[in-house]
Every structure is written in C-alpha cells, then in structure tokens.
C-alpha cells in the first residue's frame, strides 16, 4: 500500500511574477498490484505529481509513504518521451537500468514479450516512436519496481500503434503485476486499462472523484462495452468531454 499525501505544491510562474498553487490537498492511496489511472485536463499538474512521487521534485509539503518498506523504494518511471540514451543500444539501455542486478534471461523474456528481440542491438535513432516507447516500458519493468509511474506513454502515436503498445503493456503487466499509477487525459484509454480511475480538477489540482472500473479484464478489448461505460461516466462528469 502506498500513501500519497501532498498538502501543497507551489509553482513558479513562467514570467516569475510570483507563485501559484499547483496541487492542493491531494490524498491518494494505492493498493498493491492495483492499476490506477489519473484523468484530468492537460496542464493540470499530473506530470508534476509524478515527478514528486519519483523524487525528482522534493520542493513540496506533504509525504509519499511506501508502507511496509524500510529501504528506498524502487520506482519505474515511463516518461512521456521515451528518453532512451542515444549512445546505447536497446539492450544496453535496459541493462543500464538493472546495472548487473538482474539476469540476462530476464531481459530476454521482457524483450520477447514486447516483440523487440530482433531489435535489441539497434540504436534508438533507428527505432520508431512506438518501439522506443516499448523499450522505455521494458526499462521500467526490468527493475521490478514497487511502483510504476506512466506519463501518457501512448500520446502522439497513431491509433493502431497505440493499441499495439497498449496490448503489449497489458500482456507484460498480467505477467508481472505491479502497482501502477498511469496518467492520461483520454478517458477511453483509462477505462481500458484501469482498476480505478481518479478524476482530477485543474489549477490547483485536486481529486474530484474516483470511479471503480467494473468491466472484467477479459472484456477490455470490446469497444462496445468500453464505450457504454464511457457514456455512463460522461453523464455524471460532463466536463470530461
């Protein structure tokens, strides 16, 4: 169980004309092996939230509490851009993450699941965006994280590629379930992926409400069921349109 409690996060305005409140009274508990999607308008502070959780940004009031863990938690972070190191091959990029701690069998099986085995010795410049994203996903899974953060990993992919990457992500996640916090502005995507959807308001970012996605995992590829569920959600939250 992970407890995220952010009382206040201030943000310096672009023109340095003072600070504004980015996040206020944000309180969220993640259960073990739960897939939670954060849905909110663009620019509402979702990436800031993930950076705080990943300890890239420590300038906030509040606490991130990984219960039942003494040492520093392992966090996998899939950024919006794949952020692969251009001077390392696909395999070397993944090896950097584990730094000799995991076996090469582990990498092989991850590459296999993500259908990237034949590209493992290729440099990132030769990969398409969809492939780079899958490498970034492997890099995050490889460290066997206590929490997996994903920041709109399917954005700016065409629909077919996005579906493909999404399916391989779900395949990997069902093989190795981890606690996931997934950020998106696309409600349909959230319904396909999540156990629970957290709806956010903009400026300052707050939790508006939480929705449990009751559709069984086996029906998640059925567009009709997803669409019906989406319409129901939109009835209650018309501002999500």
């Amino acid at each position: 169980m992970i407890n995220i409690n952010i009382k206040r996060k201030l943000y310096l305005a672009k023109n340095r004309a003072g600070q504004h409140l980015a996040i206020a009274d944000f309180n969220l508990t993640l259960h073990s092996e739960e897939f939670v999607c954060l849905v909110g308008p663009s620019g509402c502070g979702k990436t800031t939230l993930l950076n705080i959780i990943a300890d890239l940004d420590s300038d906030f009031e509040g606490s991130i509490d990984f219960k039942q863990r003494q040492n520093t938690p392992n966090i996998g972070y899939i950024f919006q851009n794949p952020r692969l190191l251009p001077w390392r091959t696909v395999r070397q990029n993944i090896e950097l993450a584990i730094d000799g701690k995991a076996s090469s069998d582990n990498i092989d099986s991850l590459l296999e699941t993500m259908q990237l085995s034949q590209f493992q010795h290729v440099y990132p410049e030769r990969l398409s965006l969809g492939m780079s994203r899958r490498v970034a996903i492997i890099r995050a899974f490889a460290i066997n994280p206590d929490l997996l953060l994903m920041d709109e990993p399917f954005v700016s992919l065409d629909a077919a590629t996005a579906r493909q990457v999404k399916n391989s992500l779900l395949a990997l996640w069902s093989q190795r379930p981890h606690t996931v916090l997934f950020v998106t502005h696309d409600l349909r995507e959230a319904i396909t992926l999540a156990d629970r959807i957290v709806i956010l308001t903009a400026a300052p970012m707050k939790i508006m409400s939480e929705i449990a996605v009751t559709i069984p995992r086996t029906d998640r590829d059925n567009e009709q069921i997803i669409e019906t569920f989406r319409q129901q959600v939109l009835l209650n939250y018309p501002e999500l349109k």
Partner: peptide
Amino acid sequence: KDLVNVGKVLRL
C-alpha cells in the same frame, strides 16, 4: 535534463 532524470529515477 531529461536524461539526467532517467539516471536519478534508476537510482544510479
């Protein structure tokens, strides 16, 4: 800075 952040997240 994004690449530096990758290193930080990976706790290198």
